[in-house]
Simulated assay, not measured.
Amino acid sequence: MKLYKLDGSPPARSAMMVVEALGLTVDAVDCDLLKGENTSPEYMKKNPVHTIPLLEDGDLTIHDSHVIVTYLVDKYAKDDSLYPKDIKKRAQVDQKLYFDATILFPRLRAVTYPMIAEGLTKPTEKMLSQIEEAYSMLDAFLSGSKWLAGDSMTVADICAVGSATGLNHIVPLDAAKYPNVAAWLNTMKQQPFVKSKNEPGDTFLGQWIASKLTSS
């Protein structure tokens, strides 16, 4: 398998974490958005949406991180703990995957993309309030369980952690206000694959965001 990725990208890190969690081997290929490598003719032919990550497994190409991680578990995992086959349990996981896809990560991208494309140096009040709202939703989801979707860790947790740690660089998480999120993040950060595949890229992303933001 070949995985096109960028360490600073939370979606790419989701795929990287699941690859490691499953003990798989992939040919990892860096694709630098800051250099426009994702809009090269060769890459655009593979993925007209020109996003990362991108997985190639034989004759199959997948360009969405949430589909990549569920595909990898369905095809290669020894059990279904990360993505349950039970239809009700899977629905709970899918809900939280879509939450990451439609709320968490887009609210991070709403800030970082204008930094790249438009030279944004200060998030608007609306951007900041939407991040606070996302924290509130995440905290509510975690109010009845230490995990996002059920009684054990799933791909929903793995996909969401990269987005959540990224948002923290823009609006630092108030642990007193969002205790469930703080506890969940602490638990996730102890996972070996989070330490090895999320932490370095998240550190880079944080440094990059800090270099772009102004205090005025």
Rank of each mutant, 00 (worst) to 15 (best):
I68T: 06
L33A: 12
F99C: 00
V194C: 05
D94F: 10
S9E: 03
K96I: 12
S152R: 05
M127F: 12
L55V: 09
L148Q: 05
I131T: 04
T39G: 06
H63W: 15
L6E: 04
N47T: 11
P84D: 02
D80N: 14
N186Q: 14
T51H: 08
H66M: 03
E56G: 13
S9W: 03
M16Q: 12
L205S: 11
N180R: 13
A156R: 13
T70D: 04
F193A: 07
I62N: 07
L104F: 10
A176Y: 07
M188T: 03
K189G: 02
I87V: 14
S9K: 02
D57Q: 08
T165R: 10
G162I: 04
P48R: 01
L55H: 04
L205C: 06
F99A: 08
Y178E: 04
E56P: 09
L104A: 15
Y76G: 09
L138F: 11
L55S: 03
L205P: 07
D74E: 15
K89T: 02
L120H: 08
K75Y: 04
V26N: 00
A149N: 10
L138P: 07
A91P: 13
H63M: 13
T70I: 04
A117F: 14
G206N: 04
G36M: 11
T112C: 04
S129L: 10
D80P: 06
Y4R: 02
K88D: 11
K177F: 09
P200C: 01
G206P: 10
K195N: 04
M137P: 04
H66T: 10
I68D: 00
M153Q: 13
K96L: 15
Q130H: 08
V26H: 00
P10E: 09
N186V: 11
V171E: 01
L213R: 03
E133W: 08
D64E: 15
C159I: 07
E199R: 05
R13C: 00
S163H: 13
A15T: 02
V161T: 10
T121M: 06
D59G: 11
V18W: 03
L167I: 04
A149E: 12
F141T: 02
N38H: 15
V18K: 02
P48L: 07
A175C: 10
F204A: 15
L128G: 02
A134H: 10
P200K: 08
V161Y: 03
K96N: 07
T214W: 08
T203L: 11
P84Y: 10
F99N: 06
E118S: 13
R90F: 13
Y4E: 01
S136V: 00
V111W: 13
Q95W: 08
I170E: 01
D57Y: 11
A160S: 15
M115V: 01
E37W: 02
L104I: 15
T25K: 14
T187F: 07
A210E: 08
L34M: 13
S65P: 07
V29F: 00
P192W: 14
S136D: 07
S9L: 00
S9D: 00
D86A: 02
A164G: 02
